[in-house]
Write a protein that binds this DNA or RNA. Structure first.
Lengths: 229, 229
DNA sequence: ATTACTACTAAACGAGTAC
DNA sequence: TGTACTCGTTTAGTAGTAA
């Protein structure tokens, strides 16, 4: 699907399928196909030759027209396209949301909260990793990012339950799996506490993001937040 | 989808949708889009401009990238594509089968059978027209057409029930709605009687096909048989 | 960093036509 | 009728670069 120039060919394949060529050998003249494609007869002819070279159709030319059958490979291409459209159309939430923010040093409390055992166990169970003791704080700067971050609240999240010990209460936390700088897997954690406003996000990961991504205060960091289906 | 050059634009639209732009305003740089499309940054930029002119996206350019939202019209295009693929993938039978045969004059019995009232009433009820009293007979000549015609038997048909009067029994008949010469609506009727072998098809229509299509014996006629979902 | 213009190159297209 | 070749034209794509 990503091969060079393959899109025009997939379109032709789609039209051939609409004539039944994905199920049976269909007799289709290049002139007829050309009208369906909105191109000239010559181009239709060329397209068929190219499709055959790709192995997407089997073709026999007869004096009365072409006998054309889409191969399994060709049907596979249509199925790939169908699958990606199906995913887009039938999924209520977008596959990912990208946020961008600037690294800053927080109060250092992240480490304390993240390492509370009831939280930590749920992180391991529900996110699949044992978080590094500390959070990476990002300040969102553009209106777009702040708006997007607030929209994120409406999306389904992984819920980490609150708890209380002898001293105090620890509130519930929402997590969104995320990819940081297209490299590290981690999660955006929300409402861990309310020290920061909505223009700040906190990230956890199994590794120390600052160290592994060589981040310093003021660096711009891209976060791809994965929303759940 | 049939507009000139729109296919390339639909591909770009699909990639934008994969980045979530069909649900929310997404920040996408032309450079990033270009890599996803497999084209240059300049081309991606042009594609976005063209998509905006088509009214398929809403676009705001900022120094940090483009904010892109696919419009309802754009989503509509993706839905059209999805619908046609859905139909192809989830339907067991092809949308239509094309047969070609040569006109010949039969024994003239078609008129007798077609006008038997129990048949005629069912034609009107199930096909939606009152058949002209007579059938157009076509002789299939190529192996392809004969093979295709026999495959047709396996497809679901409109069933016309048989009946008997005081003299004799009239057997059940199978009908397939059809378009003759890309012009006239009618139906292919099968097993009306067994005088002819499988290399012959009989057509009925609300009009006299011979007259309206100016057909004479020996003329080649194209029939598009519509199969049922 | 970005976007997107201009000038140029490569690819797709279609008219004419051979078979 | 068909398909499909050559070849001149049109269109899409890229490089360089300004803003």
């Amino acid at each position: 699907m990503s091969e060079k120039q393959s899109w025009r060919h997939i379109y032709t394949l789609l039209k051939l399928a609409e004539m039944g060529a994905h199920r049976r050998t269909a007799k289709i003249s290049t002139e007829f196909l050309a009208r369906k494609l909105g191109v000239s007869q010559q181009s239709a002819s060329r397209h068929l030759i190219e499709l055959e070279h790709r192995g997407w159709i089997k073709r026999t030319t007869t004096p009365e027209g072409c006998l054309i059958k889409i191969t399994d490979a060709g049907v596979g291409e249509l199925k790939k396209l169908y699958a990606s459209l199906h995913f887009l159309m039938e999924t209520a939430y977008p596959p990912s949301i990208t946020l961008e923010g600037v690294v800053f040093t927080g109060l250092g409390e992240g480490a304390y909260y993240v390492t509370r055992d009831p939280y930590r166990r749920q992180f391991m169970e529900k996110l699949g990793f044992n978080p590094y003791p500390g959070t990476l704080n990002l300040k969102l700067v553009t209106d777009y990012d702040i708006k997007t971050r607030s929209e994120l609240e409406a999306y389904p999240a992984i819920e980490i339950e609150g708890f209380k010990n002898e001293n105090r209460t620890f509130g519930p936390v929402k997590c969104y799996p995320a990819i940081i700088e297209n490299k590290a897997k981690g999660a955006l954690v929300s409402a861990l506490r309310s020290h920061y406003d909505s223009s700040v996000i906190e990230l956890i990961a199994p590794i120390c993001l600052r160290k592994h991504l060589a981040l310093k205060d003021g660096h711009k960091v891209k976060v791809e937040v994965l929303t759940l289906p």
